[in-house]
Design a protein around this nucleic acid. Structure first.
Lengths: 188, 188
DNA sequence: CTTGTTGGCCAACAGTTGTTGACCTACGAT
DNA sequence: ATCGTAGGTCAACAACTGTTGGCCAACAAG
């Protein structure tokens, strides 16, 4: 079972996806025009349509997220907060797809549903294993999400100066106890 | 000093602003078209231009925010977290302007700057009075903002089902200690 | 009654958008 | 040599956008 041979057009496909991610992350869904994306990829706008059908298809192809969350068993339960905050900071700084998704999710129904899906399929399972009472897992995961997405929003999208100025270690030190408490502490 | 007499057109002006707030909150900046807003207000699109100059002017006029934050001296310092969370929940549920601002801020530079201004002019002063060390106020206010805006984002914009399902008292009970710690606890 | 102003509508403009289909070109297989 | 196809360009469409200016009706002041 060898992989299918790489076609010549695959380079173009990749260039389109890279340009699309950049534009969606910078401008959101509406202002990221197919023409601008095509120009970045140095091809004709009609190629985008041929390869991805329409703008929605392009967005779907460009924005696929794997949070690579750690197996809950693989790390000490009392330190899960620190591990998660640190991991999310890595994700957001290396991967512009997440910025794109947040920008689009804020104004686009399909984008919001995509984020709901990621939360449901990738975050919830971790919470289910790490929470003391599995029945509380959705609420606890939701609380952790408010803190982590709030950080991403103010730091990488709205760019509040004091939030941008925070050092990575400061963020981890402040937020880790919060996430830890949301996930594992007894209900208040 | 009596107020200027209410012109006939003031009703129209108000209708335009109300419709604009609704559309901006529901659709964000780009998809909230002047034509749609005018239709909601049951007037011609050109009236919007006459009264507010252009779309940016309309947005500026429609979205003005007064967080009505309590005077820090007016409430017990050890309970400021609970007071703030509760107050923000009230604001977000009664006032669609905040949803509009968040949706627009996520994709629009001017909207993001508007939010930065609100943070700087209305949130920071409270932090300056309530924080033990005024020099830490910006960082502490920023941390509190990540938590509060993250709640608003997931609950009122992205509408994560588990976050929407949380009862008001649950939210206050979980988030109040977080905000309290960010503002007043010793640095970790 | 006339006249000026206020509030409003209509029609159009110029630009941009997603999208389509006709056309061209290189090239590997036959 | 040729022929089909993959990869790509070009020009255009129809819809929609913010925006403009001209025209009309009501109405209050003279």
């Amino acid at each position: 079972m060898n992989e299918t041979p790489r076609r010549r057009s695959d380079d173009t496909r990749d260039a389109i996806l890279a340009a699309a991610r950049e534009r969606f992350a910078a401008d959101g869904y509406e202002r990221a025009t197919i023409r601008a994306i095509a120009k970045d990829a140095r091809i004709d706008p009609s190629m985008v349509m041929r390869y991805y059908g329409n703008k929605e298809g392009l967005f779907a192809a460009a924005v696929s997220v794997d949070l690579r969350l750690p197996e809950p068993g693989s790390l000490p339960r009392h330190d899960i907060g620190r591990a998660l905050v640190s991991h999310f900071l890595d994700l957001w700084e290396e991967n512009e797809v997440l910025t794109a998704l947040l920008r689009v999710g804020a104004t686009n129904q399909a984008g919001a549903e995509r984020m709901q899906g990621i939360f449901r399929d990738q975050v919830m399972p971790v919470a289910l294993r790490v929470c003391p009472d599995p029945e509380q897992a959705p609420a606890r995961a939701a609380l952790a999400a408010t803190q982590l997405l709030g950080l991403a929003l103010t730091r990488y999208v709205l760019r509040f100066p004091p939030t941008v100025a925070l050092a990575r270690e400061e963020i981890v030190a402040w937020l880790a106890p919060t996430v830890q408490r949301y996930l594992t502490a007894p209900s208040p």
